[in-house]
């Protein structure tokens, strides 16, 4: 009788769903507010199931999705070594920034990612940091997000008081922008790093094209959400996750709605630098 009761207890324990506090073995992904509580290998949401199955096939090991009450709990579980991958927003990431890093962030649309941009000012202006751009009149070469809103957000993330900016000046291209800057029609030419290279590199190595300007800022906007791993994850494993996820929208499009919903939007995932979720960090 006692033996039967013991077997019953063991069976009962095996039947209990794993809780988020004690994730089972395998590759564990922590996410806030899943439809299913605890950790599950059989999520009820079809997109979540497609994502889990795809990842399991590519990693070659069991994958479970673990639900937590909030981002802080996800971050804590990552810190405690109970998770291998976590979906976090920027505020939840901050407390674990010493032991973890983002590896992927959502891409807004086909032509808009976390664009690397610069703010160019005249050397003589003394406006050589984002903070010193307060009250400036910015010059842009396009109203497209990649050349306008994204760099503006990046500047704000790096400490520029963009709300104090004077009315924006839009010009045809980077060459017209530099001319406007030199003519005093604006105080900072804000362009993508690609445009800066086109503008300043030139075709003749002997000719210095931008000797009178300085980069007051260079950077990308802070990623507001991302897929985060512990810093002690082996490099090859980290890049494997990057390689799988950047093509997820092509290879398993039915899984994307799940991640898009949890990441707050986007059409695909782009790799990130380690400091991508640390506001104002390069």
């Amino acid at each position: 009788m006692i033996r039967a009761f013991g077997i019953f207890l063991v069976l009962l324990a095996l039947m209990q769903p794993a809780t988020a506090q004690t994730p089972p073995a395998g590759f564990r992904i922590g996410i806030e507010g899943l439809t299913d509580s605890g950790c599950t290998a059989t999520p009820s949401d079809a997109a979540a199931a497609a994502y889990r199955k795809h990842l399991e096939g590519r990693l070659g090991k069991p994958v479970v999705l673990c639900s937590y009450a909030d981002g802080k709990a996800v971050a804590t579980a990552l810190q405690d070594g109970q998770l291998d991958l976590a979906v976090l927003d920027q505020p939840s990431f901050e407390p674990v920034s010493k032991i973890a890093r983002p590896i992927l962030a959502p891409r807004a649309d086909a032509i808009t990612g976390r664009v690397l941009a610069v703010a160019l000012t005249l050397k003589t202006s003394g406006r050589d940091t984002p903070v010193k751009l307060a009250g400036s009149r910015p010059i842009f070469i396009s109203k497209l997000a990649a050349s306008h809103q994204v760099p503006l957000q990046g500047l704000a993330d790096f400490g520029a008081d963009t709300k104090s900016f004077k009315p924006e000046l839009f010009v045809a291209d980077e060459h017209a922008g530099l001319a406007a800057l030199r003519a005093g029609q604006g105080d900072a030419l804000i362009i993508t790093a690609g445009a800066r290279q086109r503008l300043c590199r030139g075709d003749d190595p002997k000719v210095v094209l931008c000797g009178d300007v300085v980069e007051a800022w260079r950077g990308r906007p802070t990623a507001q959400t991302g897929l985060v791993v512990r810093n002690d994850l082996p490099e090859a494993d980290r890049y494997q996750l990057v390689g799988i996820h950047i093509a997820l929208h092509q290879e398993r499009p039915e899984a994307m709605p799940f991640l898009v919903a949890k990441l707050g939007g986007g059409i695909a995932l782009d790799p990130t630098e380690a400091a991508a979720m640390q506001r104002g960090a390069r």
Binding site: R238, Y239, Q240, G243, I246, P271, E273, A276
Partner: peptide, 18 residues
């Protein structure tokens, strides 16, 4: 796994070491 690691490594370079 080889294909995924290689793709991830090559794609991440632009962000990790500009």
């Amino acid at each position: 796994a080889f294909q995924d690691v290689t793709r991830g490594a090559m794609a991440a370079l632009a962000y990790e070491d500009p």
